[in-house]
Amino acid sequence: MEDKILAVLLEHGRLPVPADSLGEGDDLYAAGMTSHASISVMLGLEDAFDVEFPDRMLTREVFSSIASIRAALDELATAA
């Protein structure tokens, strides 16, 4: 799962640093991801994992780190 998340961040995150240089818990916004890039990441994750984030997950926090993205995807996988 981690590789797929990194691939989405690389393609959509418009990060000024390589996505694979970031730790699980690093704040992606602090690393330079803009709010607009975060919604590209959101749509990229939905495509890559074939999921749709429900309303309650449409928040800044869900897309704020690799760990928080993984937790949200885990939750969706468990619910499915």
């Binding site: 975060s38 919604i39 749509l43 309303d55 449409l58 800044r60 897309f63």
Partner: peptide, 14 residues
């Protein structure tokens, strides 16, 4: 839209 919800909530949170 849906992506707008993230932006709107982010704007409020900050």
């Amino acid at each position: 839209g849906r992506t707008g919800k993230v932006l709107a909530r982010s704007q409020r949170a900050q």
